[in-house]
Design a protein around this nucleic acid. Sequence first.
DNA 1: GGTTAACCGAGACGGTACGTCCGGTCTTAAG
DNA 2: CTTAAGACCGGACGTACCGTCTCGGTTAACC
Lengths: 213, 213, 213, 213
Amino acid sequence: MQSRTPGTSGTPAPRPGRPRSAAADAAILAATRQALVELGWSKLSMGDVASRAGVAKTTLYRRWTGKNELVVDAVAELFDELRLPDRGSLTADIEGVVLQFAAILARPEARSGLMAVVAESTRDDALRERIRDSIVDRQKRLVLEGRSRAQSRGELPPESDPAESARTVDLIFDVVAGAVVHRTLVSAEPADEVWVRDFTRLLLGGLPAAATP
Amino acid sequence: MQSRTPGTSGTPAPRPGRPRSAAADAAILAATRQALVELGWSKLSMGDVASRAGVAKTTLYRRWTGKNELVVDAVAELFDELRLPDRGSLTADIEGVVLQFAAILARPEARSGLMAVVAESTRDDALRERIRDSIVDRQKRLVLEGRSRAQSRGELPPESDPAESARTVDLIFDVVAGAVVHRTLVSAEPADEVWVRDFTRLLLGGLPAAATP
Amino acid sequence: MQSRTPGTSGTPAPRPGRPRSAAADAAILAATRQALVELGWSKLSMGDVASRAGVAKTTLYRRWTGKNELVVDAVAELFDELRLPDRGSLTADIEGVVLQFAAILARPEARSGLMAVVAESTRDDALRERIRDSIVDRQKRLVLEGRSRAQSRGELPPESDPAESARTVDLIFDVVAGAVVHRTLVSAEPADEVWVRDFTRLLLGGLPAAATP
Amino acid sequence: MQSRTPGTSGTPAPRPGRPRSAAADAAILAATRQALVELGWSKLSMGDVASRAGVAKTTLYRRWTGKNELVVDAVAELFDELRLPDRGSLTADIEGVVLQFAAILARPEARSGLMAVVAESTRDDALRERIRDSIVDRQKRLVLEGRSRAQSRGELPPESDPAESARTVDLIFDVVAGAVVHRTLVSAEPADEVWVRDFTRLLLGGLPAAATP
DNA sequence: GGTTAACCGAGACGGTACGTCCGGTCTTAAG
DNA sequence: CTTAAGACCGGACGTACCGTCTCGGTTAACC
């Protein structure tokens, strides 16, 4: 939820003059998601979002530099709902979180927005950075959390080489996120329980081999 | 490479009037790729492509309904370069084709265009169909070819259940394509030989488990 | 009815090859007038006229250089209907022909077309020439005929100075044509019998003064 | 000079938001006249006028509904220069104002524009109304002023019947305006002093007869 | 009775302008 | 200094015609 004047995390540092409306931020992001549902990314316009939010266009541009940044923030909030459930086994935990991920990608505001900003980010490094910070890296916590939980259950051995370990986390993340996105958006087939079961088998079956240096 | 009036595969059935210029098609698709490289998808405009190709805007609209369809055809040609190399083993074959795939995704005309049209396709069924026909399904041949070659080498058992087999092909395709795309475009890390080796280990290691019903 | 290859008035000078369809000419001019009625000059398009006439666009351009020339020919035929009636007195004759002229200008194909080509002719000398030859000068016969008839009746004296006489004919023509057109198209009031009676009084009352050198 | 939102004559009633630029109006009308001179009505384009005026196309369309309305306003300003000179006699006054009128019609921006909008007005009642209000009726003041001045000089009797009088004013206006326009644009001969002298003789000679009921 | 040359329909072609929409910026008055 | 409102410049959109061209095929007059 970074804005043009990035959120000074600590004290608000009260500037002179009229302070910005806090309600406006929420209204704008909600309006953006609504517009994504109804229109999709390419037909979503700043003016339309502004009038949906009951706000002037200038108010948008004071907070975000453009459509891309706005959509990143609007979509990022969706992925913060992801939780790693404790279902008792690594297999079940993975299946649970993948199903949650698939459920989010089934929502039109996520489908429309996510791929569009990724596409834009191929030519805009600042945007890619923002996507990484706001969306991608924030969800790596799930992989880390899942691994440590499996280790405490004894399903996985404690990692030895930290560099090796980081590489494996990244690989898993690319495989999970990539496969679900591809299944959902490109193949346009549902990532349902059957598919998730098969996929999880593949992933867990391959893990030991991948972890070998 | 479908146009607005899809190619009647058999006899050309010479319609009355001046026939469409074949040279124009090639010039337009090349100009589109060039524009993708220089400008990216969102700043690519039909007028610009037309003038690069030395063609009138109407000539574009006579052949494609819009920017999305045009870009799909322009990008599709890139992926037809993919070949399954014969490197002697299943592992090596997979590594080879994945590296080729990664090399295509490293080209800016593919990066820019591919994700954008996928994003648009989330709200346009005809476009998704076109992407599937022109790009995705056409490359599944690689998976099929690789499997039959491995079977003839004795690396894989002949499939028994055809439905089960089709499901596995789809799964592999989603995993391979998804992981490489995610690594390349979202994580923005190179899918180099090291990564491909790790990924291939994961995939081949998990295959037996995934193939179990 | 001049065409691009202007009508060699005498012998048709039979060129080799297939001769032009005579029926097409009539159909095109009729279609032009119909289009003028329904669409007006500015929304009339060559393609539309062609399809109304059941003819290809090339056939139009083979005969006329453009829209303006075509419309001039189509409108010119309307004014050839004008006849000088013999109502027994100069006053009555003038009133009769002025009413006929007003009736033609009340038809939408004449209103729309005439002023438009005159407007265009302000920047196109060839077009002005064509208008003069096809429309304007051809109707001066009415003034000449009216005068000689009045002279034979003894209502007007025979002219003495030929130059002076020509100047008067031109003046009368400008006054009559100009006044009726202005009344009809600019003031947008009908040039009815009452108005024509008043106008004719003014004209005939002023004639002796104007004819004095 | 009416705009899309006609000038509320009284208080400006300050609407919210940025007010319209007054300078833009003048620049646009001047650019329109310049374009009429260089290109004529049919080759004048809104985009060209906009760029000449240093203004966006949207700014034109915010103020005028189309080319016709814009040209009417641009041309109307030309005719507001007309003044009734006091040359001591009715004859001389008329000759003076007719020469002025002819001088305006000799300017290419007037020739091109005036007839074109009159032609268009044959199919557009709102446009005809606009022409009447902005150009035609505004100049009838000249006829009225000339008559009252002639009456005060004793050259004309005071009018008795007001309806009769109004009809005569309209008739004179149609004759004067029509004849000068026809002489200038259709006959394409100059309305010079000789012609104006002859025409004025005709007009004044006929007036007594026309004024008789 | 074949040759031949101009005709004809259809429709694609390179252009130009259209009138609209949107992106971002700016200028107001109000808070 | 922020806000709502809305005008501003610029650029792209997709469409409509322009006048030209390139086809396959027809039609009359000459040989």
